Simulated scan of single mutants.
Amino acid sequence: MTIAFFDFDGTITRGDSFALFLKFILGKRFYIKILCNIHILFLYKLGIYNNAKTKQSVLESCLGGMEQITLEQKCQAFCRKLESYCKDSALTKIQWHKEQGHKVVLVSASFEEYLRPLCKKLGIELLATTMEVKNGIVTGNFGHPNCYGVEKVHRIKATYNLCDYTSIYVYGDTRGDKEMLELASKKQGFYRVFY
């Protein structure tokens, strides 16, 4: 059996999907929220804050307190825009894997909530960061650890028995995909390219 793991942001898309999602939800308020978080983003650029801490702060500031039902409606509405943000080359490669009968899994540090409608449309599986919801309200915290770096491997191994697969493809584009790329079979790890 064969399985293919794809990173999302930058690998399948042309850029950062979380920022695109926040712009879609917040409209003009997006820029006000960015200004409110400029110190956080600056510390991230300096390497003082890591990916998880930065994203957690922005999530809490932008979406904390939102009703879950409202979030779900906005995620559904966002699907078309998100699909249009994907690279044709990536979608073609995903389709090729599906035509070969391979299992295809999106593994992303971005949020499951807005990735799920796209994955359902593409007919692929999903492992991603989740938002915590309590009493129907988005708290602004993560529901699970940020699915980045070594956490991607932890999530993969907790969900799939890799010994069941004779061939493993992995596609990524950043440092956050390094550990996942090491899972690939010989000559089946692709960094910033599709062959």
Rank of each mutant, 00 (worst) to 15 (best):
E179F: 02
L63D: 04
E151C: 06
P145D: 14
V150Q: 14
L115I: 01
D177N: 06
H154C: 10
T92K: 12
K152R: 07
R80V: 12
K134A: 14
V105G: 02
K120I: 08
Y160H: 09
A158F: 01
Q100R: 13
K134E: 14
I156Q: 10
L118E: 01
M180P: 01
Q76M: 09
K152N: 11
I69P: 00
C86G: 01
Q76T: 14
K74Q: 15
L118Q: 04
T174K: 12
M131I: 12
S84N: 14
E60D: 11
N141T: 09
V104M: 06
L63Q: 07
T166L: 13
Q76R: 11
H102D: 15
N161T: 07
T166R: 12
G64D: 12
Q76S: 15
E67N: 11
N146M: 04
E67S: 13
L127V: 00
C75F: 04
C86E: 04
N50V: 00
K120T: 13
L115Y: 05
C79A: 15
C62V: 02
K121T: 15
K81L: 13
K152V: 00
C62N: 06
L91P: 00
Y114N: 06
I124M: 05
C119K: 08
G149Y: 11
E99Y: 08
D88G: 08
N51C: 05
V104Q: 03
Y85W: 14
K81I: 10
K81T: 10
I94T: 00
L181W: 07
G149D: 09
C147D: 03
M180N: 07
L183E: 06
K93S: 10
E151M: 14
K74T: 09
Q73F: 06
Q100K: 15
R175Y: 13
F111R: 01
K53H: 08
S167E: 14
K87Q: 15
L59F: 07
L122N: 02
R116T: 09
L127P: 00
I168N: 07
Y114D: 11
H97C: 08
V150G: 05
E67K: 15
K55D: 02
W96Y: 12
T130W: 00
S110F: 03
S110E: 07
N161Q: 14
A109N: 02
S108I: 00
Y114R: 04
Y85M: 03
E99P: 01
L106R: 04
Q76Y: 09
Y114E: 08
V104W: 00
R80Y: 10
G143L: 09
T92Q: 13
A52R: 11
Y171Q: 11
E83S: 07
K103E: 10
K134I: 11
G65L: 05
T166S: 15
N141Q: 14
F142P: 05
R116S: 10
G140A: 11
Q95N: 15
E112L: 05
V133F: 10
M131E: 04
V58E: 01
V133N: 08
Q73D: 15
F111T: 00
G176Y: 06
K53E: 14
G149M: 09
E72C: 10
N146Q: 07
D164P: 00
K87N: 08
L126V: 02
P145E: 13
Q100S: 08
I94W: 03
K121M: 06
G136Y: 05
S108L: 01
